[in-house]
Design a protein around this nucleic acid. Sequence first.
DNA 1: GTAGGGTTAG
Length: 517
Amino acid sequence: MNQYITACSNVHSLDSAIFAFSQVHNPNVFVYNAIIGAFLNLFRPLEGLRYYVDMLRNGVTPTSYTFSALIKSCRVLSVVGFGETVHGQVLKNGLALHVHVQTSLVDFYSSLGRVIQSRKMFDEMTDRDGFAWSSMISAYARAGDLDSARSVFDEMPEKNNASWNTIIHGYVEAGNVESAEELFRIMPKRDVISWTTMINCYSKHKLYREALELFDEMKRTGTRPDGVTMATVISACAHLGVLDQGKEMHLYVMQNRFKIDVHIGSALIDMYAKCGVLERALVVFYKLEDKNLFCWSSVIDGLAVHGYAEEALAMFDKMDKEKIEPNRVIFVSVLAACTHAGLVEEGNRRFLEMTSKYSILPEIEHYGCMVDLLCRVGLIEEALVLIRSMRMQPNSVIWGALLGGCKLHKNLEIARVAVDRLMILETDSSGYFTLLINMYAEANRWADVARIRATMKERGVEKILPGSSWIEVEKKMHQFAACDNYHPASQEIYLVLDVLDSQLKLIGYAPDFDFVL
DNA sequence: GTAGGGTTAG
């Protein structure tokens, strides 16, 4: 029966596992271990804890197997008190020197941020194996103490791949790309996890080109990517907006019969949406067997940025019906959808529901969305009231959104308030100053224009170069900056722009010359 | 008869 229960767990059939367990008279420790493990594997660790209590009531003595699963359950649940009780039971049952149990305790304490306790567990170990060493390295890395992590790594007698990968990942998380690169290059034998860790390193630090180059190198040197690698590189394609390469990755996934799980699925949805092919994003979304919050989040954001506000909100409501709990990230997309469509009432309602219905406290980015929403429709005073009510210090994004609204609706008074703050927060950015200068110029207040110009000069604020944009067409990158003539086809391009310009005017578009001084 | 560490998505 214990093997049957484990088999049920492996095919994600928790109901069958529970039923099987219920059919066992006087389950022994093997059967209990199996059901506790099944609950842990199928993301319901709390029930595992209940079965453990049941097990003790029935006089069944736990073993090292029981405790390693149980301690991990406490770890994923972050239940400190129960975990410590379990630790007590470990001692009581004479398992304090069992290497599997000790390793779980190292992980348990480090996951709760108690790395000193982890170290204590590690020091008590009489025979440490590779798992134990890696756990200790990971514990220090989680605590952000890379020096200690490195010391443990350097002391480790027979380093295995996991320990190399752990320390590399630690450097990645700590933002130390150079050390990660160095260790990656000198490690004796790179496996798929090493490559994926390093590809992720580049992605995490916005070096997406490097990420894709390393992926090519990985394939050239004969390591086969797995699903985790593919999710990582598809995401890099999304950030770069490279549709052709994104499609190639999708094809690779299909040809190699990888399951399109929630990781690859949400990466693909995001990639297609960010590359402008919302239809394909939707196809991937609807074909997914299992959808989690990430999948919904990608598709809702895709709809929102493509201007389908109503559809994005409808999608959110559909997700809600499926009992998937939203988080703070998805609300940024929901509120952005309202902003793009100018849905003030709707946005306000959703903003309030965030806290009242879902117990999510608004973060600064949500306030940013709301300020933007209110400002765009001209509710500048209301936006300022909202800013004053914020439970954190407004940042430059908030004041910038307010200033943008002031510009749009020509509110010089509140613009001054915003710029005063921006002068403190973003001393080296010229954009906001320029905006204010334009507003004063528009109102013919030339003395103020001169005053701000002087302030800018005094502070050494340089006007930054205009932003550039780029698009990939048939695997070739085309880059543009405002008014440039660098592109070989620029003459033709300007011709098309002229045509578009006349067509816009024909359908009633009037350009805003307010800021052409 | 069972278990522990290292990589992934919005």
